[in-house]
């Protein structure tokens, strides 16, 4: 399902460094001509830039010799890809069945409330992005919240604040 993302005017490439573009070129080079490599190229691109702005999609399209429409189609099809910039940390609240029946919805509501953003949004300071994830396969620990690569088990609205605080810039380097 297309995610209905409103095309955001991509900022000038000043947002990115020449090194990043060089890395992308190298990735495209290594994937070119290999069958079925579009998704992998886009994954790599997202890893480099943090998200897939139009500019980057267009480089991938040209590089792999695939129409831009197909690149856009793939980028919007998979929830893994993001067309808008992500925060420094990604907070994903699991909304899988087990998490849902154990209060995952209330946890998500509280996250929205605490961060002041909706699912798919990023805080103004670009610290946090909020995502909904369908299942991280840790159902026995439901409800779970994932922040970057750390999974937090048996969450409740009450437990969120101190955990998020650990990730905010002011807490780092302590």
């Amino acid at each position: 399902m297309p995610k209905g993302v409103v095309e955001k005017k991509v900022e000038q490439s000043s947002e990115f460094t020449p090194e990043q573009f060089a890395e992308l070129d190298a990735a495209i080079e290594s994937f070119r001509g290999k069958s079925g490599s579009t998704i992998r190229t886009l994954s790599k691109a997202q890893e480099i830039f943090g998200y897939l702005p139009k500019e980057v999609q267009s480089i991938v399209a040209k590089g792999l010799g695939i129409p831009m429409s197909e690149i856009y189609g793939i980028a919007t099809f998979y929830s893994f890809f993001s067309l808008v910039p992500k925060g420094k940390h990604t907070i994903s609240s699991c909304q899988g069945t087990a998490c849902y029946v154990r209060g995952g919805k209330q946890v998500m509501d509280e996250l929205k409330n605490l961060l002041g953003i909706d699912v798919g949004g990023t805080t103004a300071d670009r610290q946090f992005s909020l995502d909904s994830v369908r299942c991280v396969g840790a159902c026995a620990l439901a409800p779970v919240v994932r922040i970057d690569d750390d999974v937090y088990r048996q969450m409740s609205p009450k437990k969120l604040k101190p955990i998020i605080a650990k990730y905010s810039d002011s807490a780092e380097g302590e």
Binding site: V136, G137, A138, A140, L141, V144, D150, V151, Y152, R153
Partner: peptide
């Protein structure tokens, strides 16, 4: 140390 163990 599966995912569940590590998460815990």
């Amino acid at each position: 140390m599966g995912t569940c163990g590590i998460a815990s």
